[in-house]
Design a protein around this nucleic acid. Sequence first.
DNA 1: AAACCCACAATTGTTGACAATCTAGTTGAT
DNA 2: ATCAACTAGATTGTCAACAATTGTGGGTTT
Lengths: 220, 220
Amino acid sequence: MIENKDPIKSDNLTARLIEAIVNGEYPPGSKISEPELARVFDVSRGPLREAMMRVESLNLVERVPHVGARVVTLSLEKLVEIYAVREALEGMAANLACKYITDSEIEVLEALLNRHQSHIEEVDGASYFYQQGDFDFHYLIIQASKNHQLIALLCDQLYHLVRMYRYQSPRSHARPEKALYEHFAILNAIKARDPELAEMLMRRHIKNSRLLIENELLEE
Amino acid sequence: MIENKDPIKSDNLTARLIEAIVNGEYPPGSKISEPELARVFDVSRGPLREAMMRVESLNLVERVPHVGARVVTLSLEKLVEIYAVREALEGMAANLACKYITDSEIEVLEALLNRHQSHIEEVDGASYFYQQGDFDFHYLIIQASKNHQLIALLCDQLYHLVRMYRYQSPRSHARPEKALYEHFAILNAIKARDPELAEMLMRRHIKNSRLLIENELLEE
DNA sequence: AAACCCACAATTGTTGACAATCTAGTTGAT
DNA sequence: ATCAACTAGATTGTCAACAATTGTGGGTTT
């Protein structure tokens, strides 16, 4: 079976552009020059512009006609708004997951959380690892909802912005012990097939993350 | 003050394409030929493809590399998924609206609902008018949330699919009296600044709409 | 008759060039 | 000296032609 790597420049470009923006290679607010990027990515401006249109749809860049595109700047207000949306959507995801999650998916989640627990006990404050693990947990819950619209909205759109913020935030927003405790509570509710409880716990979990970020930023 | 009509073909095209697809000019499942559409809209394939990328991001068309794009087909399953997302997001919108809605916005909503009541009393089953009115009500609540991410997600993305379905559905999914009653209940909760109640009522309202659609389709 | 292969037409992906618009630097006037 | 207008350069928007891939139809083989 040959690995079918997309030879379509426009499609590959989109993913590469997203990565470059999310990890800060093109920092927030910086101008994006079409000729320059076309040179960097070794494509013509045609496919590049097509990719830009998609990236714009993801709200990663903002375009002004005849002027150009800039990487979005993540204000505190915007991030709070995003977390409100996450709260609603991931709450629903946890709710739906109670009905649709499979036994094997539950096993994967349990293994993941156990691994997190070990790591936290070993190295206190393994924050980078934890952030990735936090993403994994939320990802799996969202997937378990089996709602493709929900999955697309969260994983293909919102999470790029969330990742962009975490990558570039000087602070570490991790609170490993408490968050892990909340993750276990959510998983237990899902295992008990209790949609209302699972949704409520997920919403509280995300609200706590939001409050943490708000406080950290307000301290400055 | 001169009306600044966008002379940018690529941008205008996107809106025109969306309208054409939503109102069924290009029916679900039909193939979209780039040369043909370029002729119809009197543009080159360049701007047309840029518009197509955006329309694809809205999930109104599905593209296969080197094959082409087709208008999405709205299955019952997909619609149910969309309504679950609406339930989560519009519930949150009602919740937030309790905090951020202005007095003038409340007045507009009250006037809207009163107008609906009059119309329903006059002509029994003014279903077309009601459907537009239903959109207006939900639109205003969403706007009142003042959450730009939420507004963009619902008004700029999801609602195109909902409108597409309503336009093309042979049946009228209106249940004017009950829906109007629910609208009044939601508005009252918002006026009382009761976020939990407003969210709960909005979610029930949308769930009722979903159940109605499910039943109507299952009858066939 | 059914299945396979091959060439042809049509469509998609990509490119480079051209036109329209914005930005910046310079010149000139008050 | 400050501000406005103009010009030059660069950037964005658009186009038409070229390259690559897919689907189709006919012809051959089993």
